[in-house]
Amino acid sequence: MKSTSNTPATDRRLRNKMSFSQTVSNSLTMAYRGLLKIRRTPEQLFDVTLQPIIFTLMFTYIFGGAISGNVQSYLPVIIPGILVQTVITTSIVTGVQLREDMDKGVFDRFKSLPIARIAPLSGALLADTIRYTIATVLTFTMGYIMGYRPDGGLGHVAIAALLVIVCAWSISWIFAFFGVIARTASSVQGISMIVLFPLTFLSNAFVPAETLPKLLQWFVKINPISHLVTAVRDLSNSGTIGWDLTISLIGAAVIVAIFAPLTVRAYMRRT
């Protein structure tokens, strides 16, 4: 502003389209904003730190004896299951926070800036992968403390962790969509729980599918969450990569392909 005069509108180089690199750079900046916000309000990490610890302890000792005979042999079953359940539940918060964020005036500025329309959304979702990472690391750590020794080795456990984070990020687009269309943050929480609760519990996360009634078995087998859980079990317990991993990744890609454009459209329309 110390320069005395402005460039007139007619002398500016203007473009009506956003380039891909600009979109990426805008999204990264918005993700940086998300990280700054997490640093400023660390209390919003409560859920991702406490939930893995409490749930892992609770479910392992409640179900361990009944399902696998003892806690030790239940750990390879429950740790991948609880990991998927916890991380995906965490992704609901993305939608809730997005809703809260959008109610603030700063989103008006984002809309009036010449930036990629998707950036405020993709940035927020990207920043939230830090939450999934925290939840993942804590769940595996809890399992280790309780005596879980995955046979797949550290490398495969890391791949499994990455898979869960990627899938949670994809699923968070669903909740981001709810976040954009819902009127209040608490309704986002409500709708998301209704969707997620059956999905995570009607899966093979906690119990073997074979023990279930026929109709439930059918659902559990097509439930994408089951495939994700199986993929994580394969990776961490035996170090194998199977069909389930492919299905999980395809599912994740399909969710993003459907919900990312939907969310951006709804976000643009909302005023």
Binding site: A9, N16, M18, R33, L36, V106, D108, S112, L113, P114
Partner: peptide, 22 residues
């Protein structure tokens, strides 16, 4: 040509559009 227009304007709203937590 919304994206061009956005390159030519600055908007200061009635309610401060800045990030409270930062």
């Amino acid at each position: 040509e919304a994206q061009i227009v956005r390159q030519l304007i600055g908007v200061t709203g009635q309610y401060a559009s800045v990030d409270e937590s930062l």
